[in-house]
Structures are given as C-alpha cells and as structure tokens.
C-alpha cells in the first residue's frame, strides 16, 4: 500500500519519524541507515542560547525503560542552523525543529527564527519537558498557558505547521489538547516522558542527580496508547503518537487508536538502526495484515 501521510501540508513518505532527544541532530545516525528512508526527523530540543543541561548522572536504566534528566543540553538554535541543518538531507526528508524555552517571548523568537529556515519543515513545541525546574512543565500542565504559548508560536511560524507536544503528567490530557487546538496548533504529538524516579538503597542516593526525571521506553507504551486514544476522540487534529515504540507492530498499535504518524524515541538507543528497521518492516507487516490504506486502518479500533 501507499505509506505516505500528509498532515497540515507536511508530506511524509511513511509515518515513521524519530523523537526529539533520542536521535541527536540526525547526523549521528547517518552511518546506520538512510536518513531519507524515514518519514521525518525531529531533532534534539533547541533553545535560543546553548544549554549545559543537568549534572551527572542524568540517565538510569529501569525495567523495560529508562529515566532521563538531561536538562535540554543543546548547542543553541543558531549553531544548529549554521552547522547541522545544512548537512541534513532536508530536501528529501522533513526535518522538524523542536523548540524549548522558559517563557513565551523566548518561544516566539525561536519560532520566528526557525520558521525562516528553508530546511525546517515544521516546528514542534516542547511544552512538556519535566526536567528543568523553571521550564516547560507549567505550560504543559495548564490549559491556559498551553493555549498562550501555542498562539505565540503560531503567530510567528508563518506557513510552517506547528506541532504541540503534550505531557502525560496531567489529570486530563484532552483539556490541554483542546487548549493547544484553540491556540492554533496544526498537529499534536503525544506523549512526552512520564515523571518518575529511581533510587539506590545501598548508598541511599537517587539514580539521577536531578532526583526526578522522565520515564520512557516500552514501559510507557500503554500510557501513550491511552492518551492518543482519548485525544483522537476529543480533538479534530492530526496526532503523532509516541511512547515506547520499538517495532512496526507498535507503530500500527498507535495508528489503530487514532495516530496519523508516530515517533520512535528511546528504541533508537536499543540499536542505532532501529528507526530504519521499523520503517523497512512496516510495509511487510501491512501486507501481512491486509491493510489497504491508512484511511481504512487509522482509528479503526473495534472498541
């Protein structure tokens, strides 16, 4: 079948994207597969100024998952545009910039600068990173704040579609999803990491220097599926599903509950060719299941 997906004017050759923070600036994975075989590349979260991130240790392995509190270490948006973007095959695969800021003004100037870049296909707004104390969590947990920041980005994004990435660390994710839609979001991406922690009883220390971090990996897939299912029934916007995807079958699980596309995140760490393998495996599985089109399969859960 034809694997292509079009959302808010962004054309993907297949629905398999990579998740921000798990795929570097894309170039780190070029040795392990053909970047242009992916549906899209979402790069590491970008802030206006470079950020050093949190103290070490900032990753910990947990059963079927991991915790991270990287703290948005990144080279800053200008170095990304000057040094990384020109090396990416953006004419052949959509490159999506992930924006991170601590206030609305910063989000707006990031959006304005990135929207001017020809190689950037869309803007993904991180309103849900739980790691930085002064950070995005407030936007993601409050519908009013979420609407406000979405509007600020959308106003500066020109023709570039705006993706709002939602946090699952809320009582009702559909309330924030609706707020983002009201603020002008073109696409919703969900879910970001779940807030969590791990401790060591031998030395009585937290396993992350930041104490609290974001849980990701196969352990959170049931939560991601539930959130996509709920939001797809509450909001009339295309959804990118993510959370624990590690196989083509997992991709179809998300599409079955209503996602248009997906992002492969932590699984990129399990082996660096993971996203490429999933993209290659997907048409074979669709054939096996006799799926004829995305329109027929998407959201077709018999619940």
């Amino acid at each position: 079948m034809n694997l292509a997906v079009e959302m808010a004017g962004v054309r993907l050759k297949n629905p398999v994207l990579t998740a921000s923070g798990t795929f570097g600036y894309g170039l780190e994975f070029a040795a392990y597969g053909d970047l242009t075989a992916l549906g899209g590349i979402v790069v590491k979260g970008l802030s206006w100024e470079p950020r050093k991130g949190n103290p070490m240790p900032r990753v910990a392995e947990t059963p079927c998952g991991m915790l991270n509190a990287i703290g948005l270490q990144n080279i800053g948006v200008h170095r990304f545009v000057e040094e990384k973007l020109p090396l990416l095959p953006w004419a052949e695969v959509p490159v999506i910039a992930n924006l991170y800021a601590c206030d609305v003004t910063d989000f707006a100037r990031l959006a304005e600068y990135l929207a001017e870049q020809e190689g950037v296909a869309a803007l993904e707004v991180n309103i849900s990173c739980p790691n930085v104390q002064a950070g995005g969590i407030l936007f993601g947990q409050d519908p009013g704040q979420a609407a406000r920041v979405t509007r600020a980005v959308k106003d500066r994004a020109g023709t570039k579609p705006v993706i709002v990435k939602l946090s699952p660390n809320v009582t009702d994710i559909t309330a924030v999803a609706k707020a983002a839609a009201d603020g002008g979001a073109d696409i919703l991406a969900l879910i970001n990491t779940l807030s969590g922690m791990a401790v060591d009883v031998r030395n009585r220390r937290p396993r992350l220097a930041n104490v609290i971090g974001g849980l990701s990996g196969p352990a959170i897939k049931p939560v991601g599926l539930r959130c996509v299912y709920q939001v797809s029934r509450a909001v009339d916007l295309p959804i990118i599903g993510l959370g624990g995807i590690a196989s083509a079958e997992n991709v179809l699980e998300y599409i079955l509950v209503g996602a248009w596309a997906v992002q492969v995140g932590t699984a990129n760490f399990l082996r660096p060719d993971m996203a490429f393998r999933i993209a290659a495996e997907l048409p074979l599985l669709l054939d096996e299941l006799g799926v004829s089109s995305w329109d027929e399969f998407r959201g077709a859960l018999r619940a």
Binding site: G53, R58, Q73, N268, F269, P272
Partner: peptide, 21 residues
Amino acid sequence: MACGVGACLGCVTETTNQTLP
C-alpha cells in the same frame, strides 16, 4: 552510556576547553 553514538547525552563529561559538556 545508553546509545554510544552521541544521541542520548547521558555519558557527558565536563572539559577544560569546551563550554558545553
């Protein structure tokens, strides 16, 4: 390390000559 390829940023160290880890 989680990934070994420069993506996870879990293995970083501070240096004397670079601003970022």
